[in-house]
Design a protein around this nucleic acid. Structure first.
Lengths: 141, 141
DNA sequence: TGTTGCCTTGACGTCGGCGTCAGGCCGTAG
DNA sequence: CTACGGCCTGACGCCGACGTCAAGGCAACA
């Protein structure tokens, strides 16, 4: 199969596949015309790459999985190096989720505080210490 | 105050401040030598930018807050446009956290499955359907 | 014989938020 | 006089994963 067909089968583009090759992730045979040719094993490798990328893995992080497939394993995560990447990614995900959760709480508290201040201003005091500043400097009306 | 001092006070760099200016976020007066001069209000604006960036806001997202401060408000989130950004960011954070949580579970399940397969292979069958493929192609030993 | 379609290589563009370097001005301290 | 520090502008570099364009080759089909 040629590069266009592989791209279609794997749900990606020819540009991405050439890029993988340039990174040493997807070596290609050539036919008489100099065109790249691939087989089912290459398709499995590309699918492995796409799956991991959907999980947020960087290209380099997919390398152990691809090499594991090329070594003949049925699954890309049958090799120790792949498991190491899994574990590292789990730690990354946990710390990212924790950080994002903390930020979420801070933003939520800021929003609640700002809304409270706005409501109090609207309800009670129509100018406690001078004229109100005008929001939206460059308003379009 | 000049740009170096402002950068030190705000915990950033002169390069970042000039970048903000180039984006129209931080207009600067000039002294006789053509040097940028700033006051306390500029400092407050820069601090607002940094705080939001620590929360993961992009520069453009800080703009309503900065303009709100420049309009004379004591807080950058006293204006409706800032609240809109808060709410949008909360939604983004929620969906990101949800996505990451789902990915985390998938990766954890993949890891568990792969470890189980490895253990079963090590314990039971030392070659059920042919020779084992060799992991780590380019091993360094 | 042209036209389409797929392929090739090479190289520059994208996005964000700056870092870093080059070349030069201004004021001050030794 | 010279060195140094801080400032100026302008421009290229960086990271990741490609997108996009240019210029050309080769095969099939009308």
């Amino acid at each position: 199969m040629r590069i266009g067909e592989l791209a279609a089968e794997a749900g990606t583009t020819t540009r991405a596949l050439r890029y993988y090759e340039s990174r040493g992730l997807l070596p290609a045979r050539r036919d008489g015309n100099g065109h790249r040719t691939y087989d089912e094993r290459d398709l499995a490798q590309v699918r492995q790459i796409r799956t991991l990328q959907d999980f947020g893995f960087g290209l380099e992080e997919t390398r152990p999985f691809v090499e594991c497939l090329r070594a003949g394993h049925a699954e890309g995560d049958s090799c120790p190096a792949s498991l190491v990447v899994y574990r590292r990614k789990l730690e990354e995900l946990d710390s990212m989720i924790e950080r994002l959760g903390a930020v979420r709480e801070k933003v939520a508290r800021q929003l609640a505080r700002a809304e409270r201040a706005r409501d109090e201003l609207a309800a009670g005091a129509p100018a406690p210490g001078g004229p109100e500043p005008v929001c939206e400097l460059g308003g379009r009306g």
